[in-house]
Design a protein around this nucleic acid. Structure first.
Lengths: 223, 223
DNA sequence: CGCCTATTTGAGCGTCGTCAATCCAGGTGG
DNA sequence: CCACCTGGATTGACGACGCTCAAATAGGCG
């Protein structure tokens, strides 16, 4: 009993569990496995059979595909509250991407059966999960649009603007190499694009730290 | 009664309705609106508020975003059985893309309320819908990978290989301009890439008609 | 059958990728 | 707590792939 309450404690703060009843949360918490990952640890690898559905409770994960010459292309960064591995629903499926922890992670692991039962018992959870995946599709659309119509400098400016800001300060949460890959750029091009923005007096960069001097001008670069 | 049976008749053949009980199908069919589109007609436009969820029963639709200078970027081609407009689940959302019929279409229109009720009453339908969206995410991943690591000629070769073949014949279902855009290419580049494959003796192209002379070699171009 | 639009072809250019060397930061151990 | 050290980041030079602009051709629909 106490254990159930303890387990469900951290869950309701995430949007994916919003509106899901206490009973269903307790049930979910009791059947789901917990898994922890250290920084750099691999959750699953491309071509392995898909066995489970995941909800990231804590930490950050990158989904990547190999890109020849030992390089990798970053498809997506996953944040707390993200649900993934939904391809567990596709018959006989194998991972198309590799998932690796960028920071220490805690996640909820649901087997296909558990997911099906959860959807059956809690329509609210079903809708939240669908909404979560839908949100990812929307984000993919925005990114496709961006990489289709914007230059390297514009995409970098856009990325900087999207980072959480404290005052006029922000930081790169991930390695620049990984961010570059996500934006569809080489590390060198990413670096040069940043330098361009610095030269134009819009930002200052020191390591992972960014200071935004002229947000309006930065925004106008994007458009 | 007869009407219900009539309406549900065409539904079960689509994967998204597989396993959904007769009763639920009849209910769906009774609450959902039907909509038809002529060739070229617009279903919804970017920036309009999202009001409904759609299931394409018949025909083909393209999702596009404006790409400056009156150009457009094709994000996705939708085929019969595809569910879309799932962003109806995201609060206060507006369409990020425009949907336009490439062929005469028939579709099922579900309000947010109807979708919620359907998910509640038929967990199977909920799972099928989730699987459908998941499939689209998977496809997006494959496309991101492709545009990240393959050249123009390789992407065109890949596209040709994915077309439904009758013997060694295939056709371009959509305008080459639209296909080019979907592949992230200019029409000129698409044309030249096709020509390259023709010159290499791998295929022949006459209008929308394609003859594949050496499928193995075509496949090896992609890798 | 003729118009209108899609597609093809040509020429030239620009952005971004590649390769290689140097610089720097952040993490580690003393 | 500070200096080392290693891998990431930056910078430079160069080249190529795909884009742009423009014109000709082909194809489809009324």
């Amino acid at each position: 009993m106490d254990m159930l309450f303890e387990n469900t404690e951290a869950l309701p703060s995430l949007p994916i569990f919003e509106g899901v009843s206490r009973v269903h949360l307790a049930w979910l918490s009791s059947v789901a496995t917990r898994q922890s990952l250290r920084r750099g640890e691999t959750l699953f690898e491309r071509d392995q059979p898909v066995q489970a559905f995941y909800i990231l409770l804590n930490g950050h994960i990158k989904l990547t595909v190999p890109a020849g010459q030992g390089q990798e292309k970053v498809l997506e960064f996953l944040k707390p509250g993200d649900a993934f591995g939904e391809s567990v629903l596709l018959p006989n499926h194998r991972w198309i991407a590799t998932a690796q922890a960028l920071f220490p992670c805690k996640l909820l692991v649901l087997s296909l059966g558990d997911l099906a039962t959860a959807v059956e018992r809690s329509p609210t959870f079903a809708l939240r999960t669908l909404a979560n995946v839908s949100q990812r599709v929307e984000t993919h659309f925005q990114e496709m649009e961006s990489s289709a119509i914007r230059s390297a400098v514009q995409r970098v400016a856009e990325y900087v603007l999207r980072q959480p800001k404290v005052g006029n300060q922000a930081r790169f949460l991930y390695h620049k190499r990984a961010i570059a890959s996500k934006l569809g750029l080489q590390p060198e091009t990413f670096s040069r694009s940043l330098k361009q923005l610095v030269t134009d007096g819009l930002i200052t960069v020191q390591g992972a730290r960014i200071v935004i001097h002229d947000e309006a001008a930065l925004q106008s670069v994007v458009n």
